[in-house]
Simulated scan of single mutants.
Amino acid sequence: MHVVALVTQKGGSGKSTLAVGLAVAAMAGGERVALVEADMQGTISKWKERRENPHPRVERVADPAEIEAIISRLRAEGVWLAIIDTAATNNDLAMRAIASADLSLIPARPSPADIEAAVPTLITIRRLNRRFAFILNQTPTRGCRLSEAATSLSSLGVLALPFVGQRNDHQDALGVGLGVTEFAPEGKASDEIIDLWGWVSEHLLVESDSHGQAAIKTAC
């Protein structure tokens, strides 16, 4: 099973919206997907209440010790992908999520405040020696600020592609219990989330393959 965590201490960065969008995009491939909500704000649980489709399943956690148990249970049940949504703080839940994840995604809007707020999360990830990537989220369609933010984040680590624009479809989809790829499948927001999921899945599969190759070499 693959585990992805959305983490950053900055509120309003779009973690929950991205988690939902990526989960629904991943389901389009026929895979079993679960969302793990480690954020007491409950955005994903409220989204789930508005959703008619029973998938993806949503698991809520309040205690850091619960994360490993839930991940183990989802793995045993044959879930292919778990996406953990965390609160806007570097708390114990976020640290456990990072430690459990194959890949942590750090969303940041193209502003100095967001980029500065990503640094403590980055320090935690590096201390735990975990893989990560930044996502430029809620971006304007053009402007020097976007280019400057991309340069700043690239200097700190890997930057996922594409950037995710500030588009109403994301919030409108969340409001009716849908992923943006379900709500407006022909829209630009849908294209960006599909492409972002493609980037994430490619990096997850590359990591899985490298572990498999290492196991083969060890066995030989």
Rank of each mutant, 00 (worst) to 15 (best):
M1L: 03
V3Q: 06
V3M: 00
V4C: 05
A5D: 02
G11E: 07
G11T: 04
K15R: 09
K15L: 01
T17G: 10
L18F: 05
A19E: 01
L22N: 05
V24M: 09
A28P: 05
G29A: 07
G29C: 01
E31H: 08
E31F: 07
R32N: 12
R32L: 12
A34Q: 09
V36E: 00
E37D: 12
E37R: 00
A38K: 05
D39F: 03
D39Y: 00
G42M: 08
G42F: 06
G42N: 06
T43L: 04
W47Q: 01
K48D: 12
E49T: 14
R50T: 09
P54I: 07
H55N: 09
R57L: 14
V58I: 02
E59G: 00
R60H: 07
R60S: 11
R60E: 11
V61N: 02
D63H: 11
I67N: 09
E68R: 13
A69V: 10
A69W: 07
I71V: 14
I71S: 01
S72N: 13
R73C: 11
E77G: 00
G78R: 05
V79I: 15
W80C: 09
L81A: 00
I84Y: 04
I84A: 00
N90G: 09
D92C: 06
R96E: 11
A97P: 09
S100M: 13
A101C: 04
A101D: 06
D102L: 08
L103I: 06
L105A: 05
A108C: 15
P110G: 12
S111Q: 11
S111Y: 05
P112Q: 10
A113L: 15
I115H: 00
I115Q: 05
P120C: 06
L122Y: 07
R127Y: 03
R130V: 05
R130K: 10
R131D: 14
F132T: 08
A133V: 06
L136D: 07
Q138V: 13
T139S: 13
P140L: 04
T141Y: 14
C144V: 14
S147T: 14
A150N: 10
T151C: 13
L156W: 09
G157N: 10
G157P: 02
G157I: 12
G157E: 11
V158R: 15
A160Q: 06
P162H: 08
F163C: 13
V164P: 09
Q166M: 14
N168R: 08
H170K: 09
H170Q: 10
H170E: 06
A173F: 03
L174H: 02
L174K: 01
G175A: 13
V176M: 01
G179L: 04
G179V: 07
V180C: 05
E182A: 12
F183W: 09
P185R: 10
K188P: 08
A189W: 11
A189G: 07
D191R: 15
E192V: 10
I193P: 02
I194D: 05
I194L: 13
D195C: 12
D195A: 15
D195E: 15
L196P: 00
W197P: 01
W197H: 01
G198V: 04
H203S: 13
H203P: 11
H203M: 15
H203A: 13
L204F: 03
V206K: 13
E207V: 13
S210E: 15
G212K: 03
Q213L: 15
A214H: 03
A215D: 12
A215G: 09
C220T: 14
